[in-house]
């Protein structure tokens, strides 16, 4: 074999090892989730799917007490979807509106308000977690969808993303629209929003994943089991396993992991091109 072929071979080898490193844990989690608790306890993790797929997932999704004390997997799935979708849509709406004002209007407080929005980058949730909890709790929003979603959507990332995009829209479009007699609202609705379709799709995908994967905020915000998202359910199951018990239900823990992983992964895979575009563009 000559040099070029050796090089190609090592390249593929490195990539295959990388693929295994990234995918094997998830595969093992899935394979193990389809075995019975006894098998897992006896033999450890599994590399190939077993016969208990339907039973385990039915227990986790539909049976009361199957995985949590009372809440069903489907309820958690629903809560996760609400959080992911609500977060994505809310974020797109408020950040598009704000970016539109900042880019397309001349007004006195424009730069001041821009800095206020910028400030959110300096204040991630982690540094203001306890007072944020107090604010939400004093507004009576604990355990509500509003209290869960609204405080998360105001950060600057989406606004910056759309600001960047709006600035790249040729000036002449606004000028042409002005000559065509469009008002500020018409320009936004008839031209800017349709023009941003791909950008909106890209940011919706990313924000769905980000919303779905929220952990710290729902963790302190939700006190009732019926409001758990799948990601928070993970935390509970960890606790159950840690506390021990007669026969640790590892297969259910793995099943819940897979359920918490599947929707965002599917979204990323199906909309891969938009997702990559949105991710790379949003960080510019």
């Amino acid at each position: 074999m000559n040099n070029v072929n050796w090089r190609l071979l090592t390249t593929h080898l490195v990539l295959i090892l990388g693929m295994l490193f990234m995918s094997l844990p998830v595969w093992v989690a899935f394979a193990t989730s389809t075995h019975s608790a006894e098998t897992i306890l006896r033999e450890g993790l599994q590399l190939w799917p077993g016969a208990h797929f339907v039973e385990t997932y039915r227990q986790v999704l539909f049976v009361e007490g199957g995985v949590m004390k009372s809440v069903l997997g489907t309820t958690m799935l629903k809560n996760s979807l609400i959080l992911g979708i609500g977060f994505a849509i809310g974020k797109v709406i408020i950040s598009m509106l704000a970016a539109y004002a900042i880019v397309y209007f001349r007004f006195r407080l424009a730069s001041f308000l821009f800095w206020v929005i910028f400030m959110t980058l300096l204040l991630p949730l982690e540094v203001r977690i306890i007072p944020s909890y107090e604010v939400v709790s004093s507004l009576g929003l604990l355990d509500t969808h509003v209290g869960l979603i609204v405080p998360l959507i105001a950060s600057a990332t989406g606004t910056f993303f759309f600001r960047q995009f709006f600035r790249s829209v040729p000036d002449e479009l606004l000028e042409a629209a002005k000559l065509d007699g469009a008002t500020a609202w018409q320009f936004f609705k008839d031209i800017l929003v349709p023009l941003s379709r791909t950008m909106i799709a890209a940011i919706l995908i990313i924000m769905f994943v980000v919303g779905w994967n929220q952990y710290l905020w729902p963790l302190i915000m939700t006190t009732k089991e019926e409001n758990y998202t799948l990601v928070i359910g993970i935390k509970q199951i960890y606790q159950i396993l840690a506390e021990g018990g007669e026969l640790p239900q590892y297969q259910k823990a793995f099943a819940l992991t897979i359920l918490a992983t599947l929707p965002p992964v599917l979204v990323v895979l199906v909309f891969q091109n938009w997702f990559v575009k949105g991710l790379v563009e949003s960080e510019k």
Partner: peptide
């Protein structure tokens, strides 16, 4: 008045 722009400024989505 009506104007024809250098880069045409057509609305790309229409």
């Amino acid at each position: 008045v009506a104007m024809v722009f250098q880069n045409y400024a057509l609305y790309p989505h229409m």
